[in-house]
């Protein structure tokens, strides 16, 4: 089983994010960078499938130099090799541009299964996984919390509003992860040592047969970033006892906030 994981490095979820001077990006100096949490589920699931079926797990990332750390972490978890696409034109791509680049990179590799995150917790596009599948002309299933592979067919449990749907697809295919799929393992110390010797290729768009100029006009462009209206703590409701506080709260919700 040749498994590819699309993995993005993102700011840690507890980071305080500040807007950079250009007004359309964030300050990146003091951030902690991690593997996108949904991509961590993807790595874990890929490793479990490889453990059961044999094969290779390849990590594919578009990112700057520092994204090597995220790939090394995935290799330390147990992935076999990594490809980093590091090119200024690639870093400026929008979601669809990223999908085109990833599809080109994956197209150069053998694959039976591609696993991506449902979304990257930085841009939150919910787009790249299914878009890559479309460009490779393979089926895709999003938001998977359980899967099972038998004889070239994968059965996936997909979460939807109020329940789950079970779907079956032939391989090769792509699925995206949902929380609940697994608990990602930590990289062990021996894993970290081994990871240093695992193959990690760096590629430019030209290496993928792509023309940087094709990515210079993204279809989606950030015009401005702002902080959401700051929620300032409102009122702490006083009262002699729980009953009095509860009564005052319900009165306020009804009369002042008008939400009940």
């Amino acid at each position: 089983m040749e498994i590819i994981v699309l993995l993005k490095q993102v700011p840690a979820t507890d980071s305080l994010v500040a807007i950079a001077d250009d007004g359309v990006s964030i300050k990146t100096d003091d951030l902690n960078w991690v593997i996108n949490p949904y991509d961590e589920f993807a790595v874990e699931e890929a490793l479990r499938i490889r453990e059961a079926q044999g094969g290779t797990v390849t990590i594919v990332t578009i990112g700057p130099d520092k994204a090597v750390e995220a790939i090394r972490t995935a290799l330390a978890m147990g992935a076999d090799k990594g490809v980093l696409i590091n090119d200024p034109a690639a870093l400026a791509a929008d979601g669809l541009g990223a999908a085109r680049i990833l599809a080109a990179a994956v197209g150069q590799l053998p694959y039976d299964l591609i696993i991506a995150g449902q979304r990257a917790v930085d841009d939150e596009n919910f787009q790249v996984g299914p878009a890559v599948a479309e460009l490779l002309n393979i089926p895709s299933i999003t938001l998977v919390i359980q899967e099972e592979i038998n004889d070239g067919t994968i059965r996936c449990h997909r979460t939807v509003e109020g329940g789950t749907v079970v779907l079956e697809s032939p391989l090769p295919m792509l699925f995206t992860t949902q929380r609940g799929l697994n608990e990602p393992r930590y990289a062990s110390l021996p894993g970290v040592m081994k990871a240093k010797k695992k193959p990690l290729d760096t590629k430019t768009l030209a290496d993928l047969g792509l023309d940087a100029g094709d990515f210079s006009q993204p279809l989606v462009r950030i015009q401005a970033m702002r902080l959401p209206p700051e929620r300032t703590g409102g009122r702490i409701i006083d009262g002699d006892d729980a009953a009095a506080k509860a009564a005052e709260l319900v009165r306020l919700l009804h009369e002042e906030a008008k939400v009940i």
Binding site: V24, V121, V220, I222, Q223, A224
Partner: peptide, 13 residues
Amino acid sequence: MYGGKILADVRLS
């Protein structure tokens, strides 16, 4: 974006 920490205006073409 960024887990609700940023509100971005994006232009589509």
